[in-house]
């Protein structure tokens, strides 16, 4: 079996990374396009952001199927068919959701020993397995590590973990692209 291509796309805020990632799949010969959204609409601004992305996909020349998965990427696996093009948007949101899972019941994942390692392992494994069925998988994330280390321990932990995840994603990817103001820079 031929494994589908994995592409990692990262960029700053409003750098056009999602549009670029969508374009990669829309220009491909994938039979069906699946958008895996990790964002949860927590406030009106977030709702608007999500609806803007939704409209972009509706206006697109190809049809997109949207699946909302704040954390559980392995759960997407059963919904993917051979020949699909899958876009996961985005890892920064996924990490925040994963770190604070369990917050309501008094114990966030990042406070429980081993919880984050397990979640990250499952997520990376799901990406590889997605590519075993789908023709192409594109993972979108953000550039947020070019600033002084935060004074808040949880933010430091978030930054350190995000860096580690990005390095692992780059390693398993066939292509890795950094977006700057709409211009893709191919690192791999």
């Amino acid at each position: 079996m031929v494994r589908g291509d994995i592409t990692f796309v990262s960029g700053g805020v409003r750098s056009g990374k999602t549009a670029y990632a969508e374009g990669l799949l829309e220009g491909s010969d994938c039979s069906r396009l699946v958008y895996v959204a990790t964002g949860l609409p927590a406030d009106p601004e977030m709702e608007e952001r999500i609806s803007r992305h939704r409209q972009d996909r509706r206006r697109s020349r190809r049809n997109w199927v949207t699946i909302e998965r704040p954390i559980d990427l392995p759960g997407v696996l059963t919904m993917i068919r051979e020949g699909d093009g899958v876009l996961v948007d985005c890892i920064t949101t996924w990490l925040a959701n994963a770190m604070y899972e369990g917050f309501e019941t008094g114990s966030s994942c990042h406070e429980q020993p081993g919880c984050m390692e397990e979640k990250i392992g499952e997520m990376l494994n799901a990406v590889v397995r997605l590519a075993e069925t789908a023709s192409a998988v594109v993972i979108v994330s953000n550039e947020v590590l070019d600033e002084p280390s935060s004074g808040y321990e949880e933010t430091r932990k978030y930054a350190e973990t995000l860096g580690r995840i990005h390095r692992q994603l780059v390693k398993i990817s066939d292509r890795a692209i950094e977006m700057d103001a709409g211009i893709p820079h191919r690192w791999k």
Partner: peptide, 12 residues
């Protein structure tokens, strides 16, 4: 002199 630079946690 050889400078390696990049964001935090990038594996420098």
């Amino acid at each position: 002199m050889h400078i390696f630079f990049g964001g935090a946690h990038n594996g420098k």
